[in-house]
């Protein structure tokens, strides 16, 4: 039983993953809702965690695994308005998930039911990793870099040093390189504008498929900033933090992408 103040937030989260994964289970317990799924080619992994404080009301008195088809849940979420409140409920036996939307002024109520699926999902264990480089930058900037470089090449090499982070690609038509300096560049409308904030233990340079990175940038509407976690011999983690309507941190959406290696 979970009440979310703005249905639009859940829609944004689902829209950010629905083109990457077909089906997934929502694992619910008393602390929140967790999802983990790989794309069909097993190159990337998506996880999200929606903490209890994302919801106005939240209760889950026993652990549940709800098998969801992503296209179907996206269709239902599209039926609500983004500032509707949304109540999610399951029945007993657990074979449907019900969605009750209520308009902000309370003049319209709508209810939809999603048939749940029996999914045998394998859970992967994601180890706690000490990353060599953690890069924080504006979502819009990361999105632009990925889209720009994808017009030239298929993969992008991210190279992080103490002073800057460089994104580069090579294609048939030529090459492209974008470099962002470490640190705050200036203030705009009382807000600091970062080139990139870099925390570094050791410089790293790794290559990734741009097609997947572009999928990940669909989460850009969830947060101002994106955090890239990089290390040798581990997948890239692209993290978007999720905030509730009181601007408190209330979960995350994380994408993991396996690197490309030169043979």
């Amino acid at each position: 039983n979970a009440l979310i103040k703005q249905a639009g937030l859940l829609k944004k989260i689902i829209d950010a993953i629905k083109d990457l994964i077909d089906e997934a289970t929502l694992d619910c317990d008393n602390d929140g809702i967790y999802l983990q799924a790989m794309d069909s080619s097993h190159v990337s992994l998506v996880t999200f965690y929606l903490k209890k404080n994302l919801f106005e009301k939240y209760s889950c008195n026993r652990n549940l695994s709800l098998g969801i088809n992503m296209t179907s849940i996206a269709k239902i979420l599209k039926c609500g308005m983004s500032d509707d409140t949304l109540l999610l409920e399951t029945n007993n036996p657990i074979d449907i998930l019900s969605f009750k939307f209520e308009s902000r002024r309370g003049h319209k109520l709508s209810q939809f039911q999603l048939r749940l699926m029996n999914l045998e999902m394998e859970r992967l264990s994601i180890p706690d990793t000490e990353y060599s480089c953690i890069i924080e930058m504006m979502c819009s900037e990361f999105s632009k870099v990925c889209h720009d470089l994808a017009t030239i090449g298929d993969s992008m090499t991210i190279t992080c040093t103490k002073k800057n982070v460089t994104f580069d690609t090579t294609g048939d038509l030529g090459t492209g390189i974008v470099s962002l300096k470490q640190g705050v560049v200036g203030s705009e409308n009382d807000e600091n504008v970062y080139a990139a904030s870099i925390k570094i233990v050791k410089p790293v340079s790794l290559s990734f498929s741009l097609r997947y990175l572009i999928y990940f940038t669909k989460a850009s509407s969830l947060s101002n900033k994106v955090i890239l976690h990089m290390g040798e011999e581990v997948p890239l983690m692209v993290e978007y933090k999720i905030f509730n309507t009181y601007e408190e941190e209330a979960g995350y959406l994380r994408y993991f992408l396996a690197p490309k290696v030169n043979e």
Binding site: V43, R123, L124, S155, V234, P259, K260
Partner: peptide, 14 residues
């Protein structure tokens, strides 16, 4: 030549 690695090469089943 570049080869794409896969997630199960890094994360094991629980």
């Amino acid at each position: 030549k570049e080869t794409q690695q896969e997630i199960p090469e890094f994360f094991t089943k629980m």
